[in-house]
Amino acid sequence: MFEARLAQSAILKKVLEAVKDLLSEATFECSDSGIMVQAMDNAHVSLVSLNLRSDGFDKFRCDRNLSMGMNITTMTKILRCASSEDTVTLRAWDNPDNIIFIFESPSKEKLAEYEMKLINMDQEHLGIPETMYSCVVKMPSAEFARICKDLSQFGEAITIACSKEGVKFSAAGDYGNANIKLAQTAEVDKEEEAVCIDMQEPVKLTFACRYLNSFVKATPLCAQVKLSMSADVPLVCEYSIGEIGHIRYYLAPKIDD
């Protein structure tokens, strides 16, 4: 039997909103250690890696490892039926054809059950090598979302250039160009407002706005985002999910023809 309970469905609601633009379906790998999802978007340009640790759940039971193919569009619809304060329980039996989502109101007066059919999916896992990145930028996630949105007006791609001085985001298109520079913050009252740059070597990479704007749908999950970059390798855009895990988006850079 598999059963995982979160005291508040808000986290799971936000996770679904953070992946639904990129993934229409995904396999949820459930084991003693928690729930893992690794899936590419349809165009195979980006990769989503989600990890929810079992110890972050209020209750977690997984008697045997399960791979459950889920329709993300349907799952998003189901999670939207939960109030943020509702308790959410995911339940499946061994060799399941279905997964059950149970939402219970804080007063326990309302109990809703939604059953979703699982789908058979081809397993295709990619091996992500351990990488020492040339630049790691930590910055407020809302600021990153704002920059992606603003620069998307100017072109289809955003160039991120990171140096000792700071990080520069730029976009160019037919109507003009724009650039936004962020310096490392000297002192901040609140950690989540800090811009922190850890640079070994300067990096300049260009990424498709469309994907960056999908990644920033994870903004409600965490006040800070971590961007890890090295020349000619995919960007890693990471959001922590409270004390329970993280979501990482990998995006291949654009290259000159």
């Binding site: 195979h44 990769l47 896992h125 990619l126 791609a157 995919p234 990998y250 291949a252 654009k254 000159d256």
Partner: peptide, 13 residues
């Protein structure tokens, strides 16, 4: 500019 596939960076397991 062209877009590379993520599979060209991360090999299939």
């Amino acid at each position: 500019m062209s877009q590379r596939s993520i599979t060209s960076f991360f090999g299939k397991k």
